[in-house]
């Protein structure tokens, strides 16, 4: 009630006080989010000896290139191998995953058939199943088929993304008009041809969104490769850095490589992130419509 009867506060006075408070709060939060990355950048430029000896937030001797050289030559260049593995798992996994999610989501949105709603609710149930819960039983299944400790052990489970199907269904329903499919059918075009030459183009921006979500999920995955892989040459970068980090107590010189390696592995993804951020927002908006 008081809101309705009170005289309207002067707009400028309200905004000056609240503007500064809001900016201050957001600034503190931004520092919180950026601090660890800033620390990592600073630490990656320092020689090992300066890590403990100098202030962690200030630059000292610039040794980034020396650190990079050590990182990429350590253990016969195993770090580059790990980085390549991560790229293979994430790019190929998300590529194949996006294709099969798009086809399935498109069929669920555009074709009417018996059992469609049932299939979709199974997919929705799959969204809620955490992938970590699947890793141990998958290990047992794969170990009886000889897949453990191969690329396939990490790659195959990674291509399945129920969330991708969910997004594809929403996007296909919104982006592909019914009349277009009807006229393509009247022209005698097969469903596959229509999908690959017309519908997939209309869905292209949303396919980028689906790809990005799956790419990050695979890139960040740790539990599945840890359960599946013993052979170092198959490790993704997360698992490799975890192993190195565990050895720093015995081999303190590894510390600098863990730091530089962490920086090298997050910078490309962060850059892609910032450049493609509009695709994230469409995906998150669709995700919240549930």
């Amino acid at each position: 009630m008081s809101d309705l009867t009170a005289p309207r506060r002067s707009a400028s006075r309200e905004s000056l006080a609240s503007r500064s408070a809001v900016m201050a709060l957001m600034f503190i939060l931004a520092v919180y989010f950026l601090l660890p990355v800033y620390f990592l950048i600073v630490a990656a430029t320092k020689p090992q000896g300066d890590l403990a000896a100098t202030n962690g937030l200030a630059f000292s001797h610039f040794n980034l290139f020396g650190n990079l050289h050590t990182l990429f030559t350590r253990s016969d260049g195993i770090f580059l191998k790990w980085a390549m593995n991560s790229v293979i798992y994430a790019v190929l996994g998300a590529g194949v995953g996006t294709l099969i999610s798009a086809m399935c989501g498109y069929a669920l949105a555009k074709f009417s058939f018996r059992g469609r709603e049932f299939l979709f609710s199974v997919v929705l149930g799959g969204v809620l199943v955490p992938t970590t819960a699947l890793a141990l039983p998958l290990f047992l299944l794969f170990s009886s088929t000889g897949l453990v400790n191969t690329y396939w052990a990490v790659f195959l489970p990674s291509i399945v993304s129920p969330f991708g199907v969910y997004l594809a269904r929403i996007f296909a329903a919104a982006a592909v008009p019914e009349e277009l499919l009807e006229s393509a059918r009247l022209d005698g075009a097969g469903e596959f041809r229509t999908f690959f030459s017309v519908s997939s183009r209309l869905m292209a921006p949303s396919l980028v969104t689906i790809f990005l979500f799956q790419f990050v999920a695979i890139w960040n995955n740790f539990f599945l490769p840890m359960v599946m892989l013993q052979k170092e040459s198959l490790f993704p970068v997360t698992l490799g850095l975890f192993e190195w980090n565990g050895q720093t107590a015995r081999a303190p010189l590894l510390q600098e490589s863990v730091i530089t390696g962490s920086l090298v592995s997050i910078v490309p993804v962060i850059v892609v992130f910032v450049l493609l951020q509009r695709f994230w927002r469409t995906g998150l908006a669709a995700g919240s419509l549930k």
Partner: peptide, 11 residues
């Protein structure tokens, strides 16, 4: 604020 989402939990 969104940037940490790009960082793997391990890192």
């Amino acid at each position: 604020a969104f940037m940490p989402y790009a960082v793997p939990g391990v890192i």
